[in-house]
Design a protein around this nucleic acid. Structure first.
Lengths: 223, 223
DNA sequence: GATTTTGCTGAGAAATAGCTGAAGATTAGC
DNA sequence: GCTAATCTTCAGCTATTTCTCAGCAAAATC
């Protein structure tokens, strides 16, 4: 699955590239509009992530030109928080979806999955680890058939862990996936949230094995 | 169920495609009239959604030609608000129904359901959740046999919720289904309408459980 | 066994989500 | 055109969530 990222802010471009590669997408990056446009017209991508505001040639224009060229690759447009009003303009130009910056990486992944629509996770994937179940259609979490109430950060963290079962994730990885790229939260915040999750999914089920495990010096894993 | 969408505005075409696929229709899109005509003559569809005004070959002409070819696939014609809604002309050409742009997605779905009329929902599907009943044939809503009067937005919102019982729907999802694609309403508007609905279907029935539930951080669900 | 590092946790300040009354805009009916 | 209903936004309020801090516990290192 090949993805082109057109974004002039290197920080964002690179963090998106790194994250997507970790999810085993093949990623090309263009830091300018014209560069991005050239790549998009020559190469074949499964998805194009396009910053709306770019020097030289902006996102709207690129989208419009690509559509004129009959290139119908799905386009995910990124817009800064202030510029929300122009939803219509962007969609007119041919974008398929919108994401407002700053976004959490997992949110980006969800949109990408929706746009490239792998049958597997269309509408409501159900993740399970042991007797813990997470249903992304209605954001419901259950353990041993008992419903568990989570806040949205807790939910995002749990989903990230459960999408990588038995794999140790460092606090840095967790931060860059669950929080948005310009929030800089302390590693301790992750510890705190792990604590919250344990209170809800491990502590009340003493007769069952604890699912969230600390891998001292490295991070956490579920499984 | 296969549907062909012939529409030159990518924005509309893509958002309709995405929405219908989520409802598990198989959707093909043609961005030009002649392209659409070719597809419609070769492939077998259960429904064709046709923009009335298209470059190259317009909707009326496509409909006429298809009918000449003895292709009787139901046709739903889209017309812009300003356009002379010459119902007669379109219906003469062979269209089975009309929808004026901009439309809300749920409205489109309702027409599609009417045209493809699966025996199941022939003449007005009736949705029920607990003791709440919605009859889409006559737009009547009742709870515990007591009739409830709703405005059209309230009705559209309730129908959307009831068609996805026990599933949490985000404010974004609600906005893009219940409002039309170029309306730019605030999330708070959804909150307000949820409030209106609660006043009418939950508050007056204190002895019964509340049906509309807030799922903090995610959205709302009914059930 | 003392020291350092790493992780856990209770408490609290700051930020945010959701609810609601009210008021301005828009639309439909007459 | 006028009026009434409906639609939408706004501002203020409350409860929850988010995040940091500081002190403690456990493990690793010396």
């Amino acid at each position: 699955m090949r993805i082109l990222v057109v974004e002039d802010e290197h920080k964002i471009a690179n963090s998106v590239k790194r994250g997507l590669e970790q999810e085993s997408y093949a990623v090309d990056v263009a830091y300018t509009g014209s560069n991005g446009y050239d790549l998009a017209s020559v190469e074949e991508y499964d998805l194009i992530i396009l910053d709306r505001l770019l020097p030289e040639m902006d996102g709207i224009e690129i989208a419009k030109k690509l559509r004129e060229q009959k290139i119908h690759t799905p386009i995910l447009m990124l817009t800064a928080k202030g510029q929300v009003t122009d939803r219509v303009e962007g969609l007119d130009a041919g974008a398929d979806d919108y994401l407002v910056k700053p976004f959490a990486f997992e949110e980006l992944l969800a949109r990408i999955r929706a746009l490239t629509r792998r049958p597997k996770d269309s509408l409501g994937m159900i993740l399970t680890v042991s007797d813990l179940m997470l249903n992304s259609a209605n954001y419901e979490v259950k353990r041993s058939a008992k419903s568990i109430q989570l806040s949205s950060k807790e939910y995002a963290l749990l989903e990230y862990l459960m999408r990588h079962p038995d794999q140790t994730l460092t606090k840095d990885q967790i931060i860059s996936h669950v929080w948005n790229y310009d929030a800089d939260v302390l590693p301790n915040t992750v510890e705190v949230y792990i604590g919250y999750l344990r209170n809800k999914i491990d502590k009340p089920f003493k007769n069952r094995p604890a699912l969230i495990q600390t891998v001292r010096g490295f991070g956490y894993k579920i499984g």
